[in-house]
Simulated scan of single mutants.
Amino acid sequence: MPNPDDLRYTEQHEWVRADVDTLTIGITDFAAEALGDIVYIQLPMVGDTVKTGDACGEIESTKSVSDLFAPVTGTVTEVNTALGDSPETVGTDPYGDGWLFRVTPDDSGLDGLLDAAAYRRLTQGG
């Protein structure tokens, strides 16, 4: 699945979609494929402050447990509660129903995130 051009990305394979005052965050198809079958997700809580680059949750698969890193600094405004019953959705629809959480960002917003072309170079090795 190609990574959408309208998103921004991190080197840790999270994506960010900018809406009016909110950023929606998920993991990329590249990350979901590397993880394999996702069986559990621990997300930050609504009201938590997350900081760029800090671990803010975990994703457990049949292969491993991986930290989820905050791609931006801000306050969590919503989490995808449907993933509690269906964590596999992150792997089957990472850019749609498999989104993880939403943040109201501080002033830095999308600073330092990769565009789609830069992310493709990162994941394709050149």
Rank of each mutant, 00 (worst) to 15 (best):
V79A: 06
A34I: 10
W99C: 01
D37A: 08
D54R: 11
A116G: 01
L23P: 05
N3C: 14
R120G: 02
L23S: 06
E78S: 12
E78F: 11
E60P: 05
Q12A: 14
G53M: 02
M45Y: 10
R102T: 15
Q124Y: 10
V20Q: 15
L100G: 06
E60K: 02
T104L: 09
A117E: 13
A31P: 14
T104V: 15
T52H: 14
C56I: 14
Q42I: 03
G109A: 10
R8C: 07
V79K: 00
T49C: 03
P4T: 07
D54L: 13
G125M: 08
G36S: 12
L83K: 00
T92M: 09
G125W: 01
T22P: 08
Q124I: 08
R17Y: 09
G57R: 09
W99Y: 00
I41G: 03
Y95S: 01
S64G: 02
E14I: 02
P71H: 00
R8F: 13
D111R: 03
Y40E: 05
V65Y: 03
R8V: 09
G47N: 05
V79Y: 06
I25P: 03
I41H: 05
Y9H: 08
G98L: 00
N3P: 12
S64F: 04
A34L: 12
E11K: 06
G112V: 05
A55Q: 11
D5K: 12
S66D: 07
T123G: 07
L7N: 00
V46C: 10
Y95H: 00
A31T: 12
F101P: 09
R17S: 11
G112W: 01
D29K: 15
H13R: 09
P2S: 11
T52G: 15
D37V: 04
E58V: 12
A118G: 14
S108T: 12
T52S: 15
G112A: 10
T81W: 04
I59F: 03
S108H: 09
I38F: 09
D85P: 03
E58P: 06
I27S: 01
D54M: 14
G84R: 13
V50S: 00
E14A: 07
R8I: 02
F69V: 02
T10N: 00
G36I: 15
A34C: 10
Y9A: 00
I25Y: 02
T24G: 13
G125Y: 04
T75R: 08
M1K: 14
G98Q: 00
A55D: 06
P94D: 04
T49S: 12
T123K: 08
D115E: 05
V76W: 08
A18L: 11
G26Y: 07
D111Q: 11
E58Y: 09
I25W: 04
G74P: 13
T75G: 08
T89Q: 09
V16S: 01
V16M: 03
A117C: 03
S108R: 06
L113Q: 10
A117R: 06
M45S: 14
E14W: 04
A32W: 07
Y40G: 04
W99L: 04
G109P: 08
P4H: 08
T77Y: 01
R120N: 11
G36V: 15
R102A: 08
L83A: 01
L122M: 10
L113A: 07
F69C: 08
D106A: 12
V46L: 13
D107E: 14
V103T: 04
